[in-house]
């Protein structure tokens, strides 16, 4: 069975996914609302894996909830919390539970999260994890053992187009593709000229590129990300646009900016789709999509 998300690339010129962040705790009502709101408006729901090293419900459990509700999940899998046994076991479990796409990440370091004393794992890195997915798709595990029934994952990875220096990042990007990444999701981008330059290089490879769109909610958030989040760069004109908006119009402005960027990426055919991260404001995703029409 081909992942509906993979199929979307074949059928549509521009694919859209959105991010779902599992909650810390057992109350999933708000998240389910978001899932129901978004599942038919996007081509895939990308579920984070203990995002920012903060302990939450697992990505796999939420992916299955999305399957049950008729949506298309994309499992995020980081190397931070699991060794190679746990990673492969998670992949097999995901497959039998109906998850067809996986996004392989290294994962944030433990110290940025809410359990900074925990033991970091990083048994594999993202490139090796992608290779592992490839092996399992061919019915073998990482140790070379035959498995009873293979997986058939559509595997992806991430890249940071604004990384400084960019050269080692691009080198790893190429390794990820060589290791089997079929789609690439980028870190949040705001400067389209920079992104186009990145795409000139990325286009040389046979891989689908999804631009990362993070909804801006205030100029303060933009400045914070510029200062504290590696690989995110919000240019001055967007900062000014956010800062110029009156308080009650800020969110609206952020939505307008995101919509405008998506529209431009689609109309100019810069990349193959977008991945919308409306951190904490998932209910705004339909508005962003409307703004992008």
């Amino acid at each position: 069975m081909v992942a509906a998300f993979k199929q979307a690339f074949a059928e549509k010129p521009f694919v859209v996914t959105a991010e779902v962040g599992p909650p810390k705790g057992t109350d999933v009502s708000e998240m389910i609302e978001h899932i129901d709101l978004l599942k038919d408006k996007v081509d895939g729901l990308n579920v984070t894996d203990n995002q920012s090293s903060v302990m939450r419900i697992s990505s796999l459990a939420v992916c299955r909830m999305i399957v049950d509700r008729g949506g298309e999940p994309i499992l995020q899998l980081t190397c931070r919390d699991r060794n190679r046994l746990a990673l492969q076991s998670e992949l097999l479990s995901a497959w039998v539970l109906g998850v067809r796409s996986v996004l392989c990440l290294t994962g944030d370091y433990i110290s940025v999260g809410d359990h900074p004393q925990a033991k970091p794992v990083f048994d594999l890195d993202s490139v090796q994890l992608l290779q592992t997915v490839g092996l399992m798709n061919n019915g073998k595990d990482l140790a070379g053992n035959d498995m009873k029934g293979p997986t058939g994952f559509f595997a992806g990875a991430v890249v940071t187009p604004e990384a400084d220096p960019i050269e080692p990042q691009m080198l790893k990007f190429e390794k990820k593709i060589a290791a089997g990444a079929q789609f690439i999701q980028t870190q949040a981008i705001y400067d389209l000229d920079n992104f186009k330059r990145f795409m000139e290089q990325a286009r040389r490879h046979n891989v689908k590129i999804m631009a990362g769109i993070v909804l801006l909610v205030s100029a303060g958030m933009a400045r914070y990300m510029n200062k504290n989040v590696p690989g995110i760069f919000v240019p001055d004109d967007l900062l000014d646009e956010m800062a110029g908006a009156p308080k009650e119009k800020r969110l609206e402005t952020g939505i307008r900016i995101a919509g405008r960027m998506i529209k431009q990426l689609r109309e100019e055919q810069v990349c193959d789709g977008v991945h919308i991260m409306a951190i904490g404001k998932e209910s705004c995703v339909p508005d962003i999509l409307k703004a992008a029409e």
Partner: peptide, 27 residues
């Protein structure tokens, strides 16, 4: 800090490490 063998992670920041901004990014 992550013992990566295949290149930098996304946390590399102007040649420094996301874990500790004082330390160099190995990759």
């Amino acid at each position: 800090a992550k013992n990566l063998l295949n290149g930098p992670c996304g946390g590399t920041d102007h040649g420094k490490c996301e874990v500790d901004g004082e330390k160099d990014c190995a990759w």
